[in-house]
Write a protein that binds this DNA or RNA. Sequence first.
DNA 1: GGGTGTTTTCGCCTGATAGTCGATAACTAG
DNA 2: CTAGTTATCGACTATCAGGCGAAAACACCC
Lengths: 234, 234
Amino acid sequence: MPAAKKGDPVNFPSYPHEVLAVVLSVRNGRLCVLLWKRARSPHRGRWALPGGGVEPVERLREAITGHLATKVDVRDVAHLEQLATHSAIDRDPRARVLATGYLGLVPSDVRPELPSDTLWHPIDDLPRTAFDHRYFIDAAVGRLRAKLSYTNIGFALAPLEFTIAELRDLFGAALGYELGATNLTRVLTRRHVIEPTERRASPGQSGGRPATVYTFVARELTVTDPFAVLRPPR
Amino acid sequence: MPAAKKGDPVNFPSYPHEVLAVVLSVRNGRLCVLLWKRARSPHRGRWALPGGGVEPVERLREAITGHLATKVDVRDVAHLEQLATHSAIDRDPRARVLATGYLGLVPSDVRPELPSDTLWHPIDDLPRTAFDHRYFIDAAVGRLRAKLSYTNIGFALAPLEFTIAELRDLFGAALGYELGATNLTRVLTRRHVIEPTERRASPGQSGGRPATVYTFVARELTVTDPFAVLRPPR
DNA sequence: GGGTGTTTTCGCCTGATAGTCGATAACTAG
DNA sequence: CTAGTTATCGACTATCAGGCGAAAACACCC
């Protein structure tokens, strides 16, 4: 038999691996994360991210997609990207488990049916969370807020069609501060992130001029000319 | 004995886990990556990233640090950050191995002694690489180039002290295009990324005005006002 | 149908910053 | 001292973010 050499991956130590998803969405004008309440020890009663193990036939992305299916309709998740892998020895008291986090985004207009132990929690008013899940949440929020500025990632938070006012409120909730509709429109249109349609929204109860309906140009993540600094010469 | 419940991490499938490092540095005016030549199958003769398994007492970062020590003096690595975790089923034909990539940066003035099977390879002229290592390399280069624009990550590529001309060439090599010294100076100083010292560099062979010696203000990664767009109101 | 209130949208202004270019400073070599 | 070389600074331009107010376009009420 060919002795497995040292340095052979077959001989690398193995660890249970789990995937966790930070699913974010704007609900009632606030940025929220999907959490479920643990019924068992450890960390019984605390709130945890959805996730679980990885089957031998699955890649990480497929694994998290599968686990999410038990919480929300996966078709509702408009964007999914990997965050980081955490490896603290005692992050789970039961065993050494490596965990890879994912960021998932759900448009504000879809209302997935949730299991009874699962709830949307506002980011700025989180309950006690289990394990190291809080780190994943903070990383996810940071990633989202950064990418709102230099990618078209907003498409995954917004409905297919929307008015500028709706988009302003959506971005405001996601970013955590108010912003002006004028500048938002100009920036996003110049970058070809959003574009106006022919349609007009019907005014609300109190009247007002009908708003132009906008859509996102692309519905896959694209990076818009990243930074206005240290650019190549023309 | 308490039966381990389903959903218990103890029962999650386990996989050998490896860490890989994309160590980048500017050598002879070109951005290079550290690779070693495989002497054994599979992928014999191809060039691979340094790395290896993860011991039970190590975190991922400690593991890659340990493996790097066999290739370069770890003290030479001025910056180290996690990239992503790859999980393709057959990324290694011998076993299903999960791999977490790291980006490492070595200042251009340090000359680590390398093992005989290890070499610096220019990014724009890579040899055939082993496994999926090319994906890690591309991700690392992309990450570096992006962060050069909105962080102070350049400190990890540059010597402790340098002139603007040296920095311009360094950034040019790392970014892949030429840029002007005037603007580079203004941008980096206004952002408090670099600052002038009292010292002057002695002119070269052909004379010329002595250049001011600059240093990086901080030697840890800091993000400089990320983006000039969608900022909070003042 | 005209006035009033509300909301959206457009144009104009301001300020900050990236990027370029040319003039000047400060040295070496002959 | 002069010519050549390199670095630095100031001035100018272009672009873009951000803000404000006027005008547009509706609903509602009389």
